[in-house]
Design a protein around this nucleic acid. Structure first.
Lengths: 209, 209
DNA sequence: TCGGCAACTGACCCGCGGGTCATTAACTAG
DNA sequence: CTAGTTAATGACCCGCGGGTCAGTTGCCGA
């Protein structure tokens, strides 16, 4: 909510302000329920002004994904390139980072939810997200696993063929928070601990298998 | 699509027919985009007739959840009560069942998607789903883990405190199929294999930890 | 056969909100 | 100071679809 005297001309700042307002509106209302009028009001602007900078509601959402989600994965990519310690520790770091940035952060979690909810409708957006984010994330995990196996830290196996499975439980956590947190809060810390332990150790006792 | 001469009176059959039509419509259009008129047409009935049996679009959706999802979990519950073999095998069975019924089945996956997308909006529905399905599923898994630990099959650990984490990767699979399958198909069989292996064995080599 | 109940119909009502555009006024160059 | 440019405004348009209800007709019991 930007407060200012009416009818200021600030061409350069508007897009960012409108985007921020849209993130908030989407987070509170979801995509389908979000009103352009409400985004405009939050940005301290008239409805028509929004259309000066974005042509459709969809375009606003795409801009948000580009602006808010990509950085999270860029950080993880950098971290993994520069890593010196064990691959197990790197994996713990990356997944912990992901929980902090994507599951516990209300704004980004809501972006994720919208992507899930409306992803099919915007083929282009799903394709963008796949291309720019998922492929890179998977590559990073695949590399991490490869190094881990080479170092004798990790065993080889079916999971190495589907690296994204390592973050599977995090998605469940995101869904739970989106959908059922009003009924029963998810203990994110405990869930994260269980997640890390599970993927690293599995459930079988050492004597089995 | 029921074909029949116009204006038949079949009070008893209508609800089931409308529900089936609605499942199809929701699966194709998603909840927000589904039109009552279209559901009516699919059911071979006028729009007004739909409102004779259901008062709102939401109510139709709730009826679908009750009618289509609960049975899947009921089967799993029965299976686990009567199980004689090892808990690891039971776990494999249950998860495989879940993939077949919920992830690979288009109708049910779409119901799941709708629940995720619109779950918050209908607090009552989320509460119902939590109460009638999730709590039971978690109880079942908790019991399975307990038995496994007692039998020495499973080790104890943080995962035992968050049993639902065992199905986490399945949710990722569902999301992927919903959102990105048009860009890149998920190999469900391979994913399932990786899932089972991961949760049972983890990624660490035996010498580590 | 015929009344009357209630299942069924679909034209209509109406609020909503995405998107438009004629008008207004902030800023600037000269 | 003024005229020209263009950012900003918000009343308006319009299609959509959820939900209604007065009228129609199938069916059954007498």
């Amino acid at each position: 909510m930007v407060k200012a005297k009416r009818r200021e001309r600030r061409k350069d700042d508007r897009p960012a302000e409108i985007l921020q307002a849209a993130v908030t509106e989407f987070a509170e209302q979801g995509f389908a329920n979000a009103k352009i009028q409400s985004i405009a009001t939050r940005a301290g602007v008239a409805k028509g002004t929004v259309y000066l900078y974005f042509t459709t509601k969809e375009e606003i959402f795409e801009a948000i994904v580009r602006d808010r989600i990509q950085p999270v994965f860029a950080v993880a990519a950098t971290m993994s390139q520069q890593w010196q310690g064990s691959q197990a520790d790197l994996l713990r770091r990356i997944i912990t980072h992901f929980y902090g940035q994507m599951i516990e952060n209300d704004e980004r979690r809501m972006i994720l939810k919208t992507l899930i909810s409306e992803g099919e409708r915007f083929g282009e957006l799903a394709a963008f997200y796949h291309r720019e984010i998922l492929v890179g994330a998977r590559k990073m995990l695949r590399e991490l696993i490869r190094k881990g196996i080479e170092a004798g830290e990790f065993r080889d196996g079916a999971y190495a063929k589907e690296p994204m499975i390592l973050v599977g439980p995090a998605i469940f956590a995101a869904i739970w928070k989106m959908t059922f947190d009003s009924v029963e809060k998810l203990n994110t810390k405990r869930w994260l601990a269980a997640h890390l332990e599970l993927i690293l150790q599995g459930v079988l006792s050492k004597s089995s298998s």
